[in-house]
Amino acid sequence: MTLLAANNLFKRFGSFTALDGVDLDLDRGERLVICGPSGSGKSTLIRCINRLEEPDSGTITIEGLPATDLQSLRRRVGMVFQQFNLFPNLTARENVAIGPRKLLGLSRAEADARAEALLDRVQLAGHADKLPSRLSGGQQQRVAIARALAMEPVLMLFDEPTSALDPEMIREVLDVMVELGEGGMSMIVVTHEMGFARRAADRICFMDQGRIVAMAPPQQFFEAPPHPRLVRFLENILGH
């Protein structure tokens, strides 16, 4: 059953075309990985889905409905950023609780309970009272995931969630994401972690110059790459 349908998206920045007619569908519970060279429009695409960027033309529907107002759309779509973007003056618990409390009308006790449960789920049970500056990058990113989950989204977007992390912390974040996907969450993940893609994705798509040029399930994607530019990209990224 289709959760997300994006049709014929175009987005320009000045004279530069960042999205050049993108179509994208996602089923409920599906996990899609997007990869592609830097500047190919991956961030722009997922930022159009929650309207942090406004596409110049094209349509996006979620659960069959076009977005009526921005805020209710964004409450249903969680986003995790490369740079975590935690609120530095709030503790981990407050970072997670503030959305449900201010936007979903939960009481403080309810919101805190939800935050504690989610922090527990991302393996940060003992860290609820810490400010972000006291947490490692990997811990901060897991708080950011919990913060997005606290809004009970129908779709989670990840924009290179491990690119700003030291190698030893990448694993702990990816593990949380794998588990999230196995739990049935619909996810779109921009990443170059091909191990994650192989392990957790239902489909992988390859973007180049503002277009989706290849889309396939992991096995086919890696073993019979359906596009010559993808072949070259995989050679570079897998270090062959």
Binding site: L52, N89, G99, R147, M151
Partner: peptide, 27 residues
């Protein structure tokens, strides 16, 4: 205040005004 702070607030579903008052101004 870093642009990412705005984006985090907006992505959660706060409108611009609430983002400014709740997250940007305190910082």
């Amino acid at each position: 205040v870093a642009k990412g702070q705005w984006e985090a607030a907006l992505a959660l579903g706060f409108d611009r005004r609430a983002s400014l008052l709740q997250f940007i101004l305190p910082q």
